[in-house]
Nucleic acid binder design. Sequence first.
RNA 1: GCCGGAGUGGCGGAAUGGCAGACGCGGCGGACUCAAAAUCCGUUGCCAGCAAUGGCGUGUGGGUUCAAGUCCCACCUCCGGCACCA
Length: 928
Amino acid sequence: MPRYQPARIEPKWQSWWEAHDTFATPRLPRGRKTYLLDMFPYPSGDGLHVGHPEGYTATDIVARFERMRGTSVMHPMGFDAFGLPAEEHAIRTGTPPRESTERNIATFRRQLKMLGFSYDWKRELATTDPGYVRWTQWIFLVLFDTWFDPETGRGRPIAELPVPPDVAARGDAAVAAFRDSHRLAYQSEAPVNWCPALGTVLANEEVIGGVSERGGHPVVRIPLRQWMLRITAYAERLENDLALVDWPTSIKKLQSDWIGRSTGAEVDFFVAPAGAAASFDAWRHARRAAGFPAEAGREALRVYTTRPDTLYGVTYLVIAPEHPMIDLLTTPDRRDAIRAYREAAARKSDLDRTDLAKEKTGVFTGSSCIHPLTGLPVPVWVADYVLATYGTGAIMAVPAHDGRDWEFAKAFDLPIVTVVEPVDGTGHTESLFTGDGRAVASGPYTGLPTREFIARVAEDLRAAGMGRPAVNSKLRDWLFSRQRFWGEPFPVLHELGPDGRPTGAIRTVDASELPVRLPELVDFRPGDTPDPPLSRAGHDWLYVERDGKRYRRETNTMPQWAGSCWYYLRFLDPANGERFVDPEVERAWMPVDLYVGGAEHAVLHLLYARFWHKVLHDRGHVSTPEPFARLVNQGMILGEMEFTGYRSVKGGWVSAEAATADDTPARIPADQVEKQGEHFVLRDAPRIRVDSRAYKMSKSRGNVVNPDAVVREFGADSLRLYEMFMGPLEATKPWSTAGVGGVRGFLDRCWRLVVDERADDVRLSSQVVDDPPTDDQLRELHRMLDKVTTDIPALSFNTAIARMMEFVNFCTPLERRPRALLEPFVTVLAPFAPHLAEELWEVLGRPAPVSLVAWPIVEARWLKDDFLEIPVQIGGKLRARVTVPADTDVASMEAAAAADPRIAELLAGKQIVKVITVPGRMVNFVVR
RNA sequence: GCCGGAGUGGCGGAAUGGCAGACGCGGCGGACUCAAAAUCCGUUGCCAGCAAUGGCGUGUGGGUUCAAGUCCCACCUCCGGCACCA
């Protein structure tokens, strides 16, 4: 009867832990602290996926391990519960999102508890809790109250923003407008990505190749009033501070590329009116006297270039279709052509402008600008390969040294002038050359190496008032509003005039009045227009009066990212009604020491959270410059390995490499294929190759593994252990149900090591005895302990588990199993298979919980062997092994090796050129 | 196209430049059993050989080294990301 029954012991210990608050975290750490954080899940209607427990088990093992070593452990869990899927489900079924969200959270909570994670559940939070939303809105107010001071490179209170006298002179409204234009949270009328199918505006990051990331719906660009967050102000710090964190280099690189910092220069080209030359001279003199102005004005077209050394190779200029100076630069005869081109460009989605349209398009404006160094006219074109949103929205085209300009020049038959030659002596080149080299045909700069040229010309342009060094980044300001229902309302009020229309003035909701709750809405569907659902809220919600003025609430909501930007801070002090987090608590626990989650958040979530954190840091609300000290991405778990054969229309099999779209793929059971050379083939028709690979789990493919089913069949400890045993945490790896059975077999053996299986009730096996362990047994034990102890902090769980399996394999045949061997083993098993470990600990007669027992001490003296088996090589090939005492010196090792009969035989008659001996490792005879 | 990461038995994987394949799955053989399951024991990279043993072997081709899965060069395949950012 007393077989290992996870279904009985797992709920038992889960209740025990809960009843005893075993994993409660103190308000402040006592002694050493560690903060172990999982990326909290979005509680979808499908419940937990086997991918979730992978990272969660990893951090849980570390958490349990650290607790047993006496560390104060912060290990919380919560739910990222705002967002589109809940809202869409709500729309489909007519249930309010809050209801379905709560139901989904209940499912997730049940599943997470079923897996035995040692979270401090008293800290649980959901981003949708009013008590949480309150502080998300409060942080928005902080962003709203902050401007970025470029002098100090930090965010400061808006009250400290210096107001220029001429602005102040124009009155309060002008001052307010000036401040609003400097806030980190500001409104903008810029063109946005409107997705009609989703009924919302999307951030650039949520639009992939012209369609929405979620759902793949078309996206069009329309102008709309939006809330923006000035993340670009922090671009440089977000980039530089990557040096402060221990993250995978690939993630750092991804963030760095996303920020996309580039250095170069801005250069002004004089806009030539009809009779050019004379006025260019006048402009030039004025510029030399006055210097480079902050705005180019109407007299000059400002371009951004990373290669000012190619100025002499400029053969035309290009402005984006949305460039503000386009009308000014268009000559009357070109007006129709330009208008047509602009309209076409506006209709094009980003998809058309990038992926499909590799062909360059553009139209000549009819006018020219004057080159600042040569004084010669340069024609101005309009083309959509220049983006309005990057740099100045205008470029100087150097077709000889830029691939895009090259293509454009070829397409429109524009001149190509070479001004850089490779230094490696290949000489003058007729083809595109984009590398660094040496300047040719560049006036006084001819002969200069690229880098020197850039430095020199930048200085000269600055002195002439024609240009200045400039830095740009690909990062755009963060579009922070959504036209949806299920998100945090903005704590913002729009003032209404006597006519009931907005005056343009805004005020924020006082922090003491937060949270601004979502209204009860009968109809929360998005509209056909970008008018948000909240605008259909009742008047009592929508209109408020403050200080005798009427206001209408902001009806946009925040994006899903908002809640996940700071949840790691709220976990530290989740019930605080006075502050978003107690500073004493924050200082004690931050930063997060280990953050584990999927690589899909490499850019967006992690960049946004870092940005908010830096603003909070600048404003004195948090103590660390970075939130997440160490980051690890768990790999994806794929579905079970599949073999796919192809059937032709006629019914026969087609070999995989010859299959076409007409042949239908068919799944083939594993026992009908075999490996032949490089490929798998059909067992019954070895000429027919089949594809073999594992696919991403998806409902449509039908290969999704449900954790509930795995727990039912094998138990939670088996699921935990299997996911850790599959391979390295960070690797992508296929699921194998047989593999789960494998680790279950291991847990069964652990059980039988301790429990008498033939008895009627759970009782200690008579083979467990109080004998002192033998030296051999202690060696085996401490080696296992040592491996597990070093592997856990390295997150190398698969090898730790392998070592525990070896230990169990060692113990299984023992007729008499010393308790002093088994108890430390059960202790170190506890982080991996906590339920089983608790049960075995109880069977061993020790007081629960093993989860808080001190981690065993590894005794170094048991890690050394008395004798070692040393490989002996001749010419690098293994020929024999000899056993020598562990402390044998080099000479004795060589002697022992040479004395081996087989080695002696092989060495006979050979001349030994050299003997390489690595003490304690190997001997190698190099012979001639 | 550019940037990452990875290629090791039938499968998942292990190996501070020093015995390739730990551990698990699967396979094969045995014990127990009337039998099966479960369990336990043994065996299992490929080729040749009765065997001792020998040869080959970490995607491909070169190189460095007494010694390379590991370091260097070139290439191939797969996976992930980015993609007119001047």
